[in-house]
Design a protein around this nucleic acid. Structure first.
Lengths: 134, 134
DNA sequence: CTGCATCCCCTATGATACTG
DNA sequence: CAGTATCATAGGGGATGCAG
């Protein structure tokens, strides 16, 4: 998924590629609160399947965002952790999370703030120019 | 896509939902450099189809991230612009873009930096505990 | 406990043609 | 120019069973 000599025109494309996947962002966010075992992640994200969890963890690992820590013992124990490199991305996700929180607030009860911005912009700019072509 | 009384456990889920879609992030990023006409966007993102472009624009508009400016004239002229509300998100995308740029650098020629972080972490932590259960 | 292998489906995306 | 309407497709993701 990353080995392909894919041409990105924008850095953003590369970045979005890294967090593409239904759960990658969520996973990374949870790991940002500390190293987690596989099972803990499943508990934190009940909706995700084993397969997809492993899958997306592998991709994040491949992109050097997280780090897989294998403890050789019986029963096996595996932990995942954000790498120093990955933290740069994780921090952005945390910001995104904060934005999301506010966004949720806006979606719920209080729409005034959102509406305010809306009116502000549409006030002067959604003008209806009479029919003259350019 | 947003009217459904969806339960988010994390603000991040809501945020990721807003930029979910293959091109939404890219679109928003392009709009962050200024108001754009529909056709300009198609030029900036040649790979996107008319249908999908419109579709994702509608969703962003619905989430109040961007604003559709209709000039009634012939031929029709439509412009899209980031709302004040949307800017909070757009800013994050710009950061994400910067991260992506660096990430691309790491992927290309110089892997030293990335590797550095990697070694840093794995040095003390990828220990292989002998076989003792807990 | 963790992870792999299958099978299957759904939905987002793409291709194409048409309207105002 | 901008946007719909259809139909077709791919591939990400879900369910289940098995393995170390």
């Amino acid at each position: 998924m990353m080995d392909t000599p894919k041409k990105y025109k924008l850095g953003l494309e590369a970045a979005l590629d890294v967090i593409r996947g239904k759960w990658k962002g969520i996973i990374l966010f949870h790991l940002s609160t500390g190293r987690k075992r596989t099972h803990e992640l499943r508990t934190l994200i009940p909706e995700i399947t084993q397969k997809v969890l492993t899958q997306q963890l592998r991709e994040l690992e491949h992109d050097q965002i997280i780090h897989r820590i294998l403890h050789i013992q019986n029963p096996p124990k595996v932990e995942y952790e954000v790498t120093a490199y990955g933290w740069k991305l994780a921090d952005l996700l945390i910001s995104l999370c904060n934005w999301g929180e506010q966004h949720l607030d806006n979606l719920h009860g209080d729409k005034s703030k959102l509406l305010e911005d809306y009116l502000l912009l549409s006030g002067g700019q959604e003008m209806q120019v009479p029919g003259n072509a350019e």
